[in-house]
Design a protein around this nucleic acid. Structure first.
Lengths: 340, 340
DNA sequence: TTGAAAGCGCTAACAA
DNA sequence: TTGTTAGCGCTTTCAA
C-alpha cells in the first residue's frame, strides 16, 4: 500500500528505528545518516502514518472543541468561527489537529465527547461554553480528562483551568459609562440565565447601578432568547414601561443588532432616545448604524490562550488549574450619547 | 492503562477475536456469547481504542473540512457554522468525526490538508469554498483522494463531486424580480472574482439584464472586499454615478448589511430609494430593517448532502462524480418595492 | 461458532 | 551512534 518506515529504512540502508529517530530529530543520530534517511523519505514520498504513531505513543496529537449544542441559534454567532480561528492558529504551530463537535442537541454532543475521550481520539478538550449542570463538564471532571473552558466554570472554579474576561468589571464599566453620560434608567438584556457569561455581565451591571443608587426595577432585567424574537420581545417589554430606559446594556452584539432593529420599527432612535452598549466587538458592530459602543473581548486571543493552556495540561496532567484573564477594551463609538 | 479487548476477552472467557466480532456485531457469533461479552464490556467500562482500530482497518472514521483561509474575514460569515452544523449532523449519525482546518493563510491551510491526507487522519475531505487555481484542490485531484466541494468547481467540473445551488438561475430570478418591480437601473455587488459563487451570481444577473435589454454599464458591477469597507466603497461608487441604481443584487447577506448601513449614512432609504436583493438567508436577514428579500440557499442542507456524498465516495472510490443541486427559495420580504 | 496468530506502522527499551 | 525486538490495541485470515 503506502510507503512505510520500513521502506525508507531499506532504501537508506538503516534500521526502522533509526528512521523513527530521524523523524523525531533525535540528537544522537549522526548528521550524515539523518541526511541519507531524509533523502530516502523524500525520494519515496514518505509520510508517517499518524494512527500507528498515536497507537504507539498513546496520544493523538489532536484536541477536541465542543460547541454549544447547535440546536441553539447561538451557533450562528460569529464568535465561534473567531475563537476557532484563534485555537487553530496555535494548534497549527505545534502541528496539532482540531476535532470539533457539532452535535445537534445536548445528548448527541455528550455522545460525541464520550467518543472523543474514550476512543482516545483527542488528548484534551476545549469547551466553548459554560453553564450550570453540564453533563459534559461533569464527565470530564470525573474522568480527570484534560480540558479547559472558554468562559468561567459555574462551580469547581479552583479546579478547572479556564480563560475568560473579567466580564463583571467590563459590564460594570459599560454601565458606568452610561451613568456618566447622565443616564438614570438603564436596563440589561442578556441571554439564558444558565450561562455564566450572562450571569457575570448581569452581576457587573447590577453592582454599578447599586453603587450609583439608581433604580433597579425587576422589569429592567431581561433574559431572552437570542436574536430576532428575543430582541423584539425585550424591546417591546422595556419600552411600554411607564419609565422606559434611556440606556441599555446588552450582552452580545448580535442581540444588539436585533434590539436596534426592533427599536427602529418602534420609531425609537439610537442614540438620541436610547444609548446602547454591548459586548464582543464583532465586526458587525462597526457596520451598524450607529456603530456600537461595545467591549472588545479579544475573541481570537481567548482561543489562542485556551489552546495554549490545554496543551500544557496534556503534557503534564498535574499542571495546577489556572485562570487566564484576557484584558478587554471598550470601543467607544456612536451608539451612546449624553442624555439631554 | 486502559481496558483493552483482551481484558474483556478474559473476563468473558473468550478469545480477543471473538470480542472484536461482537463489537462488529458479526452474525456468526451466538447470541449467548454476544450477551456474555457485552456484559463484560459494560462491567469493565470498555471502550474501543480508535487509533488501534484505524490502524488495523486503515481508515479513520473521520473526515476533514477545509474552510477558506481564515485571514479572510469571510470566515466570520455565519454561513460556516451553519454548513458545519449540517455536516456534523450527518456524520454523527454514522459515527464519524469531524476535523476542521483553520489555517491562517493559504499556505498553512495547504499544510494542514497534506497532514490530514498523508497522515491518514481522514478518509475524505469537504472543501467549503471553490476558487480558481486552488493548490488544495489540485493536490486532492492528483492524489485521487476522495473529496467534495460545497459550491461549484472552476474546472474539471465533470470529474468532481460537488453540491451547490443553481446560483445562476437564482441570481437571474432575483434580478428579474427587480425588473418586474419596474427597476431599470440595477447594479451587482459581489465578492472576489476568483470565487465561483461570485461569478455564477454575476452571470445570472447579467443574463437577466441582457434579456430585458436594460443598460449594463461596467460601473454597475462591483467586486469588493467583504464587509464594512467593501460595502461602503461599493455604495459610494454606485451612488455618485450620474444615474445611480435603484435596484441592487448583492451576493451575500452580510455584505448587504454593510451596504444598508452605508446607504443609511448617505441618507438613501431602502426600499424607497433603492430596492435590495440578497443571498443566503442568514438569520440576520430577518432582523435588519427592512427585512431582506434574499435567497434561501439551504445552507444546512448543503452541509448534510456534502457529507452524504463524501461518505459514499469513501466507501467506493470509483463512485462516479456527481453533482447535487439543492433547490433554493426566494424569501420575499421588505427590502424590495415597486419603483414609483 | 470460536480460537490462534499474524500484522497494521510506529516507538522505545535494551543491546551492541 | 545504531540495530534488534517487543509491543501499542485492534482486525482478520486460517484452522478447528
Amino acid at each position: 500500500m503506502s510507503i512505510t518506515i520500513k521502506d525508507v529504512a531499506k532504501r537508506a540502508g538503516v534500521a526502522p528505528s533509526t528512521v523513527s529517530r530521524v523523524i523525531a530529530d533525535n540528537p544522537r543520530i549522526s548528521m550524515e545518516t539523518k541526511k541519507r534517511v531524509r533523502k530516502a523519505m523524500k525520494d519515496l514520498g514518505y509520510h508517517p502514518n499518524i494512527n500507528a504513531r498515536n497507537l504507539a505513543v498513546r496520544s493523538s496529537q489532536s484536541i477536541g472543541v465542543i460547541m454549544p449544542s447547535s440546536a441553539d441559534v447561538a451557533l450562528q454567532n460569529p464568535f465561534f468561527p473567531e475563537v476557532l480561528r484563534g485555537i487553530g492558529s496555535h494548534l497549527h504551530e505545534v502541528e496539532y489537529s482540531l476535532y470539533v463537535s457539532t452535535g445537534g442537541n445536548e445528548e448527541t454532543t455528550f455522545e460525541e465527547v464520550q467518543r472523543m475521550v474514550n476512543g482516545n481520539r483527542v488528548d484534551g478538550i476545549i469547551l466553548l461554553y459554560s453553564r450550570m449542570n453540564d453533563p459534559v463538564q461533569e464527565f470530564l471532571m470525573e474522568k480527570k480528562f484534560p480540558f479547559v473552558i472558554v468562559g468561567k466554570p459555574f462551580e469547581n472554579e479552583s479546579e478547572i483551568t479556564y480563560v475568560d474576561n473579567n466580564n463583571v468589571q467590563a459590564s460594570k464599566d459599560l454601565t458606568n459609562h452610561l451613568i456618566e453620560l447622565g443616564h438614570q434608567h438603564i436596563a440589561f438584556i442578556g441571554g439564558s440565565k444558565e450561562l455564566t457569561v450572562t450571569s457575570d455581565r448581569l452581576h457587573g451591571y447590577r453592582s454599578a447601578i447599586k453603587e450609583a443608587s439608581l433604580p433597579l426595577p425587576d422589569e429592567y432585567i431581561i433574559h431572552t432568547a437570542f436574536l430576532k424574537s428575543g430582541g423584539r420581545e425585550a424591546v417591546e417589554k422595556l419600552f411600554q414601561l411607564d419609565t422606559p430606559p434611556t440606556g441599555l446594556v446588552v450582552a452580545d452584539d448580535l442581540m444588539t443588532l436585533g434590539v436596534m432593529n426592533a427599536l427602529e420599527e418602534l420609531g425609537i432612535n439610537c442614540p438620541e432616545d436610547v444609548s446602547i452598549t454591548s459586548f464582543n466587538n464583532l465586526y458587525l458592530s462597526e457596520i451598524t448604524t450607529p456603530a456600537l459602543t461595545t467591549v472588545d473581548i479579544q475573541i481570537y486571543n481567548l482561543g489562542v490562550q485556551s489552546a495554549r493552556c490545554l496543551l500544557e495540561l496534556t503534557k503534564n496532567k498535574d499542571e495546577p488549574a489556572k485562570r487566564i484573564i484576557i484584558p478587554y477594551d471598550i470601543k467607544y463609538r456612536k451608539s451612546t450619547t449624553p442624555i439631554n
